[in-house]
Amino acid sequence: MFEMTSLLTVKLFAFAPFNWFLEDAYGAFMEALAKALGLPVLEYAFMQRAYLAAICIGVIGPLVGTFLVHREMSMIADTLAHTAFAGVAVGLFVNNALSLSLSPIHSALVVAIGTALLVELLVQYGDVTTDTSLAMILTGGFALGSVLITATDGGIAVGIDAYLFGSLTTVSRASVGLLVLMTGLVSVAVVITYRPLLYVTFDATAARAAGISVVWYNRLMVVLTALVVVSAMQVMGVILVAAMLVIPVATADSARSFKRSILAGILVAEVTVITGVTLSYQYGIAAGGTIVLTGIGLYVLSLGGRRLGLRTRAWRRIGRPGERVFTRIIDNTASEPKADGGTEDEER
């Protein structure tokens, strides 16, 4: 809770400069861009906000997603998104019952962070049932959300589609503000903790033996995931938001180094969101869905490109036998019976 209040303070504090940024800096830039490119769509304030939101999502999605995907924890993003929906519903429900006007995004943040820590506990102590538990939390969160929404009389079901499927037109000034703030916060957190996060992702046991607190960095990772998912869900929709943490990362997977794979992931995500938002506006179709389909399209293209690349490399290798020095063939001594008669490597 302390985190939340300090967050809100920061937000209030940053409000005036943010307005200046949104109108005089970013807005002016977009207007100039609109004139230069002859694209009047960039002059509308709501589209300017939508593009800004999309750009932010394109940064933080892969930034956190790269770690998540390589720890094989992508399912967590989806779980948190669905429980964030319960958070939205809780906010609306409480508002309705107590005549308050809390932002449902804030209650979603609280619920998602809480669930994130719970999920981390499950992963930490979990065995084979982790997968089942995640599925249960995911559907449970969503079920709770749907029940709360129908239990509340009045018009709260009205805006719910926007949360489910995402929407460009409902991206308010406040939600872009939150997204910009989160982008800053998440980026700073990842930059500061990049090394331990990478070590834990690459070789958790060795990291632990080297005195790095794997548990705390896991917690950090799931909380960051919760922040990303909640701040991106207004554009993407709760059902689709996890895609932005996964698909661009998968597309960028052929990058050589980890740093490059993050940067490539962000680049791919930016192309994805900007194309997606543009198409969505152009044809009046759902933003989240368009973005996800664009992302999958890019992934398929990259697969094709990779295959083509492999083929050319193979050709080159035949042309230059010197290359083969590096491709040592593993001989079959590895599968000889061991002294203890064990079969350890076949078991896994």
């Binding site: 390589h70 990478l198 997977d253 990058a255 180094s257 980890f258 740093k259």
Partner: peptide
């Protein structure tokens, strides 16, 4: 499986 270089 991870994109990590030898140096990294």
């Amino acid at each position: 499986r991870m994109p990590v270089t030898v140096r990294e």
